[in-house]
Design a binder for these strands. Structure first.
Lengths: 220, 220
DNA sequence: GGGTTTCCACCTAGGTGATAAATT
DNA sequence: AATTTATCACCTAGGTGGAAACCC
């Protein structure tokens, strides 16, 4: 279900903005890829969003899930530098709802601060027990953000509201098409690799300026 | 006020255990010192405690504060390797209540997990705006742990219950005398320095085995 | 001189893509 | 042949005490 939904009139007034849209756009133009590993890999770029129109004293939970865009499997044609459809999708793993670790938020907090899903991790391990989001490699996905407005009597487990299915709550879903990506176990498009290296601080060690050739090393 | 207090019969049944008492005892025997800096320094050892006798479905907040043990100022006599009273205490900074960042906890969580105050930081900067605990150097202090039972209608600011004064709440205070220490800007007792180096993983670089003498370096 | 601050080398902890080996 | 896994060097981020400089 890619279409944004909302089952609560008060949430119709809420707006969600993708804070780092420019960066996502640059990846999207090339065809974003996200690495998935057995132990879980962070997404880069991170989904960072801000909310307006929320009620000051209400309490909210922000969640992310990632759903298949189509029922296709893809492969990368190196000689053509493009993605091709390789067949029908594998059986999808059950979609996991990832609750933002700082949730719940008051409306006041949501108005001030950016909600960053930097800790979200992606895995290809269907047996994963760490709560990471399980995806199939070589399949195309769409992240979604859900904002749930908590009822005052909401049942808590410590800080963590028990949200099993957003359908049962007052919620609204936001979808940013520029955050679509293909899950991979190794990067396919070299331009994506380069953009990741140039924009992710943790990959700084692979940037051109910091990688000396043997000759450069010798000349020092 | 060093004496443990409790204003709530249900909390009388609660017990609090200092999980790393053995380590604290080793420091206490030598006279624990804690570094304070302008930007804030973690405590080592950390106060790690577990609670039993809490109600499964109730919600609790754990807090720490650090209060003066006496109205004295101390100095360290190197030639005697001991602490001496150096006069009357300086004017104390207002005691700051440090709420555990993971609070609130359900009783269920408290029964299972250890509450670790590892992120608590100490500072000598009276103007500190980071929420660190402000202490006077060369003064003796006693950390205290407060367990507050939240009323169901408790007013929240996001995850963070607004606790201005434990006196207004249902609370119980726990005091472990072995966690007393003298605040310092530089270690005085060399035995304390050695025990810190040997027991704090972050100080591993100063352990004997990893510190080579010039001779050892030469012989490699 | 006693106490404090600053800067540093050396750690812990964990996020990167490259690479080669393993798998299918 | 295509894809996945394990390991690695190289980062970010930040917690240590040492040592010298700096106060007062």
């Amino acid at each position: 279900m890619l279409k944004p939904k909302c089952n609560c009139p008060e949430l119709e007034r809420v707006d969600c903005r993708l804070e780092n849209k420019e960066l996502w756009d640059r990846f999207h133009e090339l065809g974003t890829e996200m690495i998935i590993t057995k132990t879980g890999r962070r997404m880069f770029p991170t989904v960072r969003c801000s909310f307006s129109g929320v009620e000051l004293d209400a309490r909210y939970v922000a969640l992310m899930d990632i759903v298949p865009v189509d029922v296709k499997r893809y492969r990368y044609a190196y000689h053509r530098s493009s993605w091709l459809v390789a067949g029908k999708a594998d059986a999808p793993a059950p979609v996991r709802l990832y609750m933002h670790p700082d949730a719940p938020f008051t409306g006041e907090q949501l108005r001030k601060q950016v909600v960053s899903f930097e800790k979200t991790k992606l895995t290809n391990n269907e047996m994963d027990k760490s709560g990471h989001i399980v995806l199939n490699s070589m399949h195309k996905y769409q992240p979604r953000i859900h904002l749930v407005k908590l009822r005052p009597d909401y049942h808590y487990n410590g800080n963590t509201p028990v949200i099993n299915n957003v359908e049962y709550q007052q919620f609204r879903t936001f979808v940013f098409p520029e955050t679509q990506f293909i899950a991979v176990t190794a990067y396919q498009n070299q331009l994506i690799t380069k953009l990741k290296i140039d924009s992710n601080p943790f990959a700084k060690g692979f940037r051109d300026s910091s990688r000396l050739t043997d000759l450069e090393r010798y000349e020092m």
